[in-house]
Design a protein around this nucleic acid. Structure first.
Lengths: 201, 201
DNA sequence: CCTACCGATCGGTAGG
DNA sequence: CCTACCGATCGGTAGG
């Protein structure tokens, strides 16, 4: 909402790359990448379509930046969440808490990543998918480690890992900042659900 | 795969409305509604784009039929799954089992419903959303009923219901018919996860 | 930041 | 089932 800073007045708005990205975030999340025209992004910023090119290179670059940055941040969240935590149940709790939290605090980004990856061109697409695989594998490994340690008792680690992750993704679909629960509270609940799915004893 | 029945030979294939829908299912699921051109659907059927109009009225009608039929079947599945079942835990187990099963056996339909609803025009869009709300509310009601009966102990019925449903939706993203687990086995596991999230005692 | 404009492609129609 | 074709719109460029 970089746009909000200048209001909707007639004041000479200087559009920035960040403002273009923000408008793209909103529209891609609402209508999808292919469902959004650059003319709509321009209209949101109250400029003409060709003027967008002063702040970006191509429509595809907007998608790539959004998806790549978000995916990298998800992985960084994970690494930070488990760093230095010994107990495997706490590692899984932390990992799912930050993942859930990101889906509540970055709803547009999450919706785009989960919907428009197919619209992403190579090589970005492959890189993003690889990072996502690594994240899912890390969750799966945590479950298996917990089972071996006798803390969890869910043997289908792959199914459980996918279910846990997608449960968190769902937050982006319904969470509202002005709803009854804060992002932190929702993240706390969903990390608890994750431990139940893993079969915490 | 109505197309598979006639193979890829040069034989005079008579395209049918069902074949057009099947090709649309595959392509919409892969690339999204706006990411799929009618020329691509025609190419899949080895005919020219205008010939499609002998078997359909408009591109939007293809989407509407797919989404509306699928949503109605989800609701019918639910009603059948809980009918005549007294125990509330068994009702939740059955309801989530059939929902999970449908996402394994009708992957393309599920992906389209969960991705392209925004591309659906009114009034179909509103009708579909209403039926989906009713389904989510039914799951939520089951959880609350179970809590009152002392069978479950998860108080956040809304969060749990969304989490459970979206966990099942995830199946459409990764399930493979030739994978290690059958659709029935996956559905069984996920209905068990649902009971854990609900806090079955 | 704009107007003017490009080729390509879109969904869909006419008329066999 | 086809060819021929429609107006509209797409992402993007030229050139101020």
């Amino acid at each position: 909402m970089a746009q909000a800073a200048v209001g909707k007045s007639e004041a000479k708005t200087t559009v920035s790359p960040a403002a273009v990205r923000d408008a793209a975030l909103t529209l891609f999340a609402e209508r999808g990448y292919h469902g959004t025209a650059l003319s709509q992004i321009a209209a949101e910023l109250k400029i003409r379509t060709p003027s967008l090119y002063n702040h970006m290179r191509a429509k595809q670059d907007l998608l790539r930046d959004i998806v790549a940055d978000t995916t990298e941040q998800v992985w960084a969240d994970y690494e930070q969440a488990v760093e230095g935590v010994d107990d495997v149940a706490e590692r899984l709790r932390n990992a799912t808490r930050v993942y859930a939290l990101r889906h509540a605090t970055h709803r547009r980004e999450a919706l785009i990543v989960n919907r428009d990856i197919a619209s992403l061109e190579e090589p970005a697409r492959g890189e993003v998918l690889e990072l996502r695989r690594r994240h899912a594998q890390a969750i799966k490994d945590l479950i298996e480690e917990g089972v071996k340690a006798g803390r969890f008792h869910e043997e289908s680690s792959t199914l459980a890992a996918f279910g846990i992750l997608e449960m968190c993704v769902s937050i982006a679909r319904w969470f509202r900042e002005d709803g009854p629960l804060s992002a932190d509270e929702v993240a706390e609940k969903y990390s608890e659900y994750a431990l139940r799915v893993a079969g915490l004893t």
